[in-house]
Computed example of a mutant assay.
Amino acid sequence: MKNTYKTQDTFAITTPLYYVNALPHIGSAYTTIAADTVARFQRLQGKSVLMITGTDEHGQKIQRTAQSKGRSPQEHCDLVVSGFESLWQQLNIQYDRFSRTTASNHELIVKEFFQRVWDRGDIYLSQQQGWYCVACEEFKEERELLEDNYCPIHTNQKVEWRDEQNYFFRLSKYQEKLQAFYQEQPNFIQPESRRNEVLNFVNQGLQDFSISRVNLDWGFQVPVDPSHTIYV
């Protein structure tokens, strides 16, 4: 369950946006029921509540899963999404918004936000090399890998060597600003155990990270370079 944002009279809460490589399971139900319980309680307190749930539908893993089942990526996503919607109806989940990352309004928001960050000079093109796990959708350190280059998480899948140009976000630029903000606003992250976890992560040194992929059709094109797909 994601962090919540609240003021005196309003309350917003969101579940994870669930990945559509498979139908919903007990873990999906657990986090959604938990969020729904909190939302119902806040409504009883007289708050104006916004509860969001939805699905994360882009990426190479989804594209390959759809291909393996003889479907287009959109057909696959629509089928799995109907499973989520059906389950939430059976569980009487009272969400206010179901957000799909394939929706046209989501595409407009993503591209507008990318352009805004690009205009600030916080995105740049650079070379990236390393072992990539399609299932994790992230690069792995060689020391993390199992024997014969298998992923330590998806132990039945080998990682792939990638040597490609990607667009990166300058996260390192904001390390000192984030540290100062967390110092000035000690209650911004709760509970304290999670605050300490975030602080430890930031204090270790933030690294720039890639936000695009090449050779991937299932996603939104980078506004400044259509040969790249935005990784969200």
Results as ranks from 00 to 15, higher is better:
136 C>E: 12
75 E>N: 11
72 S>L: 14
87 L>A: 00
90 Q>W: 13
116 R>S: 11
87 L>Y: 08
86 S>N: 13
100 R>K: 14
125 L>T: 03
116 R>Q: 09
114 F>K: 06
137 E>N: 02
140 K>P: 14
82 S>D: 10
39 A>M: 00
127 Q>E: 11
95 Y>T: 03
46 G>W: 02
122 D>T: 07
134 V>H: 09
115 Q>G: 15
71 R>M: 04
127 Q>Y: 09
141 E>I: 07
63 Q>F: 02
132 Y>I: 02
82 S>T: 07
105 N>A: 14
133 C>Q: 04
108 L>G: 09
98 F>T: 02
59 G>N: 06
136 C>V: 04
84 F>E: 05
58 H>K: 03
86 S>G: 13
121 G>V: 05
56 D>F: 00
111 K>I: 04
129 Q>R: 14
91 L>H: 15
116 R>N: 10
142 E>Y: 15
37 T>M: 11
98 F>D: 15
62 I>T: 02
45 Q>W: 04
115 Q>Y: 06
50 L>Y: 08
104 S>N: 12
138 E>F: 02
115 Q>D: 12
61 K>Y: 09
109 I>Q: 14
100 R>C: 10
53 T>Y: 04
79 L>H: 03
94 Q>F: 07
114 F>T: 05
116 R>C: 07
139 F>T: 10
73 P>N: 03
101 T>I: 00
89 Q>P: 12
99 S>D: 10
52 I>V: 14
112 E>D: 13
77 C>M: 08
114 F>D: 08
96 D>T: 04
73 P>G: 01
139 F>W: 12
118 W>F: 14
131 W>L: 01
69 K>W: 06
54 G>C: 07
51 M>G: 09
120 R>V: 08
54 G>N: 08
115 Q>N: 11
91 L>F: 15
65 T>E: 02
113 F>D: 13
101 T>K: 05
120 R>D: 08
61 K>R: 11
59 G>W: 02
126 S>G: 06
138 E>S: 02
98 F>G: 15
100 R>L: 08
57 E>G: 02
